[in-house]
Design a protein around this nucleic acid. Structure first.
Lengths: 232, 232
DNA sequence: ACCGGTCAAGAGCAGTGCTCTCTTTTTCTT
DNA sequence: AAGAAAAAGAGAGCACTGCTCTTGACCGGT
């Protein structure tokens, strides 16, 4: 019977969840390298070796946390996008920007795990990629929708992407369907600009020069919207 | 006599340098968290406790490496800028962009140390800040020169920064002197965009979508130049 | 009633940062 | 020049880490 099997399976799932929860707590307070399997076990009243029944190594636990993080961020971004009328493309872009920044501010260590230096000796398994692009997919749909609605009106004077960009543009088109190369190029600029800003802020790169980042962020993201061609 | 004093001081300076060199090597191959004082000592034929005569803690060693890294990057950026005619502001900007990217590609772990997640429990001492802004100072001078020469011609349609941005703009003006708020705002956008791109590339955030990053990077930085108002 | 799979527990290995003490070497002072 | 003082190396040791292996308990299906 599957119910008897689930009896065991269920406590296993619950323990697994408890482990990741405690680990996430440690991550939040100590950061990625401060995450200790033994400390997690201690907090659970378990012996350290028992954890290995659930996660074969520390890296596997980290991977679980990374996937959770990507999903949490992706969900926040999805929710922010969904709260804005579909045809308000600029509003959707700004909502996504704020969702990313707010989530990063609320979970700096998790953000660092996702978008900071990769943990040394750690290579992201394929499982993470699907979760990793959740936010990107939302963003791609906004750009795609705006282009489809014919509201993209980029400022003049921008150089056109070289023909050799076509191959990469084709691959990026998987997440930003049906837009020409130059839109893809500008979309990449805005996307890297968003995360570049947030990373600067979270990682303390502004060196006390920007004390009111909320204001500067809002305005910079508005500029990015204008560069993309969104109406501002 | 100072020469007798330097006898000891000199071997001390040399050993200090040897420690940082070996540590940098470990950093390059293993990454920041893989850096081990004991391993450094072993490689020097020293006993681990002796290292503590030179660096009171692992974090202090890391700080030294961070300062070295900022200086190395800053120097690369300064050289790249100096190799371009002063009045070719666009060329200087592109030279700086390529210098940053090339240095990051050549020293990914060091780049991660500087611009990735801050090492947990580690906060940058004040000493690092001076070294940290070397590249920024070069960049600021380019923007300042271009504005002074009257060649900045940004595309229309960009929103103007809000008045509340003025305070932060004033502080940023320390490194980008004598330019109005809107130029500072655009300069911040380009600067964060540059590092956002490089971080995405170095940290593997492009997820196999951008296989020819050199081309896309060059074009994106050209776009940033145009947005700044530089002639392209 | 038994038997096979699952799990917790504990000991143990190799490694880490760091501290303390002890000895040797070098430098400064008298 | 001799002795005091400062600096540096060596080594043992503490508390911690990830991880492995073995042992013994429990639990569900035949």
């Amino acid at each position: 019977m599957s119910s008897s099997r689930t009896a065991r399976e269920r406590v296993r799932a619950e323990l697994t969840r408890e482990i990741t929860d405690i680990a996430r707590g440690q991550l939040a307070t100590e950061g990625a390298t401060g995450l200790s399997l033994r400390a997690v076990a201690r907090e659970m009243g378990m012996v350290s070796s028992a954890i290995y029944r659930y996660f074969p190594s520390r890296d596997d636990l980290l991977t679980a946390l990374i996937i959770d993080g990507y999903n949490a961020l992706g969900e926040a971004v999805e929710r922010a996008d969904a709260a804005v009328p579909r045809e308000d493309h600029t509003g959707r872009w700004l909502a996504v920007c704020h969702a990313v920044r707010d989530w990063a501010l609320a979970h700096p260590h998790e953000y660092a795990l996702l978008y900071g230096s990769p943990v040394p000796g750690y290579k992201a398994p394929v499982d993470t990629v699907a979760a990793a692009i959740r936010d990107t997919v939302v963003y791609g749909r906004i750009v795609s929708d705006a282009h489809g609605a014919g509201v993209l009106n980029p400022p003049g004077g921008l150089p056109a992407p070289p023909a050799s960009f076509g191959d990469d543009a084709g691959r990026v088109r998987d997440v930003i369907p049906e837009v020409p190369d130059d839109v893809i190029s500008r979309a990449l600029l805005a996307w890297t600009g968003l995360f570049g800003w947030v990373s600067f802020e979270i990682f303390g790169q502004f060196n006390n020069a920007v004390l009111d980042p909320a204001t500067a962020f809002e305005h910079t993201m508005r500029c990015h919207a204008a560069l993309l061609g969104l109406p501002v």
